[in-house]
């Protein structure tokens, strides 16, 4: 079971996660309007920018984050922004959406000039997240854990970051045990997705390069 302190940490992170999300008008725009390849590209850039702004607001609410060295805060956010973005997007694709919505979104991403070799692993990742049937709490905690990765480039005080990440990991581990009693591997699988995210992050950097070129 979670201690009162752990329950508080969970509630705090979950509330922040639910509160800071992409505005609905922007999400609607993605579904309703028809755009050319170039407009798709610009819309995805706008979405990505908003994603980062929302992510920063969420991160500020993670207990202890603002007490970290300012440059370390930036290093953590820079290192994790893409991974957090993929996690959030995975949720969009695994949620039950009105008929046809996920197809429209997928079509838009496929028609934004991104090469197929980057698209396929991304949708594979979304599928693998879907298979885990994660609860909102798991999404919120996993996002916080991703952000609080002490091994990101340019982080100076790794120990301080570890001290923030460890309690969140512990809450996630306990939460998985109580919420998925018949799936003892749930916690390990969630951590496995973080490894997959690192690969996507790496691909993403290559993808941006190919996008810039084209």
């Amino acid at each position: 079971e979670l201690s009162q302190e752990q329950q508080n940490l969970l509630t705090y992170i979950l509330d922040a996660y639910n509160k800071h999300r992409i505005p609905q008008d922007m999400a609607k725009k993605l579904l309703q309007e028809q755009f050319s390849t170039e407009e798709n590209f610009l819309l995805l850039i706008e979405m990505a920018t908003t994603h980062v702004q929302v992510l920063v607001e969420f991160t500020k609410k993670i207990p202890g984050f603002l007490s970290l060295d300012h440059e370390d805060q930036i290093a953590l956010l820079k290192g994790s922004a893409v991974e957090a973005m993929f996690l959030r997007s995975a949720q969009v694709f695994t949620k039950k959406m009105p008929h046809g919505h996920s197809e429209v979104l997928e079509e838009r991403i496929r028609k934004s000039g991104i090469s197929e070799e980057f698209i396929t692993p991304m949708f594979n990742f979304y599928k693998s997240i879907g298979e885990l049937q994660m609860r909102q709490e798991e999404h919120a905690l996993l996002t916080a854990i991703t952000i609080l990765s002490p091994d990101r480039p340019y982080v100076k005080d790794q120990r301080a970051v570890e001290r923030l990440q460890e309690p969140v990991l512990d809450v996630l581990r306990r939460f998985c045990k109580t919420q998925h009693p018949h799936k003892p591997q749930q916690f390990a699988r969630l951590l496995g997705r973080l490894t997959e995210l690192r690969t996507l992050n790496h691909h993403h950097a290559e993808m941006l390069e190919s996008w810039r070129t084209s």
Binding site: V56, K60, I74, L77
Partner: peptide, 21 residues
Amino acid sequence: PASNLGLEDIIRKALMGNVEE
């Protein structure tokens, strides 16, 4: 426009901004 800003600029600006309640 936001599309001209790099990731680090967006993060720095957002970190400096006030939290919207």
